[in-house]
Amino acid sequence: MIISRRRYLAMTGSTAALSAAGCTSLLDGETDDSGDQNADPDTDEDDETDADSDASSTGLAADDWPSFQRTPGNDGYTPSSAPTDDPAERWSTTLSGALEEQVAVVDGTVYAVTDDGTVHALEAASGDEIWTESLEGGRAQCPCIVDGLVVVSTETGELVALDAADGEREWTADLAGPVAGPTADAGTVYVGTSENPVAYAIDAASGVERWSFPLALDAVDYPAVSGEGVYVAAHSAWDGRLYALEPTDGSERWVHEADRMRSPAAVDDGVLARGYAVTILTPAGDPRQRTGFGTSYPAPPATTSTALFGGGSGGGFTALDRAEGVPDWHASFVGPISATAVTDDRAYLTTGRPELVALDLATGDRRWSRSLEGGIATGPTVADGAVFVGTNDGNLTAFE
């Protein structure tokens, strides 16, 4: 079911719409009623994004997806061309184990890590295997491709870098415990550990530690990085914290506390802290806005300069206007919803059926969907003119 912003607000009023989508604006207690309830998102020029500005700000090639949610900030946006209507299957293959996270795609090569710790390199055009490498203590994850290396974390406390061309091990960093991450930016790899929780900055070329910072809770998932800071999520039981650290030396800037915590996203005007809801924080760490995306536990959202797109365990999926803090549209699926990927005109996600779905970015209308083989699907990767998605049956498929 798709509910447009105009219909949503006309039926319920802006305050009720915020409640229905799990969104509270301006957490200092004020209510934001400044938005135009009759605005039509189909004619909103702010929905457009700029591929050229993305390339200049991130340094990423348009057709590459080198890490979790693509950018160091984990924003899930790509200017890559992707199938917008009625895609065909480019290829499908079965890997050595379950796929639980997005795959990475760089320079026409797909990199995937399965739950048995095997790193797979495949031709993006054909799905043919280039090389595989098994890592002791490896686990299913999205690898990080940086400066010709495939960087992978392990449960044994090793951060491993493999040559992207042939899978040969280039360096190994021995860290304090099981490793969460990695995320890379400007030649540095950022990770955290659990059991003995520490945040690290590791030189991507050599594996040498640049700095470390002790955490009070176990690091989880993938750090987010921007010019304002390195953001590391941590939790233990019901406690959660988001640490903002200085990129240069790892010193603490601020800490945000919430129920549990998962991978954050850095945006141009702050950071998204993802716990049982998503709290949008200013660069100084002050709460500015809060949303549940109409679901019970949010998956990693995607963000553009004007909107946030996200769903979660309950099957709800919402496009949230960043300036006004109100939903542009809301859709319902059979949950849970995966991490979201967005292009200039589409939002891509997987559902609990499982199926891969493409939605119109402006309206939320379903443009196409494809059933997937398996019980649980990964978040989609949009790169090389295709959408890549895996399942816990080890199946990896490319649609174009």
Rank of each mutant, 00 (worst) to 15 (best):
A10P: 11
M11F: 13
L18A: 06
C23Q: 06
T24E: 00
E30V: 12
T31P: 00
D36I: 06
D36W: 06
T43C: 07
S56I: 07
T58N: 03
D64H: 15
P66W: 03
S67A: 05
Q69H: 14
Y77H: 10
A82E: 13
D86W: 00
P87K: 07
E89F: 07
R90H: 07
R90K: 08
R90M: 04
W91H: 00
V106N: 02
Y111E: 09
A121Q: 08
E123I: 09
S126N: 05
E129T: 15
W131D: 02
E133I: 01
E136K: 12
R139E: 11
R139C: 01
P143G: 11
V146A: 10
G148S: 10
V152W: 07
E155T: 15
E155R: 07
E168T: 07
A173P: 05
L175V: 05
G177E: 11
G177C: 10
V179N: 01
G181K: 08
G181R: 03
Y190V: 09
V191I: 03
E195T: 15
P197S: 06
Y200Q: 05
Y200R: 05
G207L: 06
V208E: 15
E209D: 09
D218C: 11
A224E: 03
V225T: 12
V225Q: 06
S226G: 15
A233C: 02
R241G: 03
L242Y: 11
E252P: 09
S263Q: 14
R274W: 06
T279R: 01
P283S: 00
A284L: 06
A284G: 15
D286T: 14
R290W: 09
G294L: 11
T295G: 01
Y297V: 10
L308A: 12
F317S: 02
T318I: 14
D321A: 02
V326A: 01
S332R: 14
S332C: 07
G335R: 12
G335I: 06
S338E: 13
A339T: 08
L349W: 04
T350R: 02
T351G: 02
G352D: 03
R353P: 01
P354Q: 11
A362K: 05
A362Q: 04
R366A: 08
I376Q: 15
T381K: 04
T381G: 04
V382A: 07
A383I: 05
D384K: 04
G385D: 15
G385Y: 13
G385S: 12
F388P: 05
V389C: 11
V389G: 14
G390V: 09
G390D: 11
N392M: 03
D393H: 10
N395A: 14
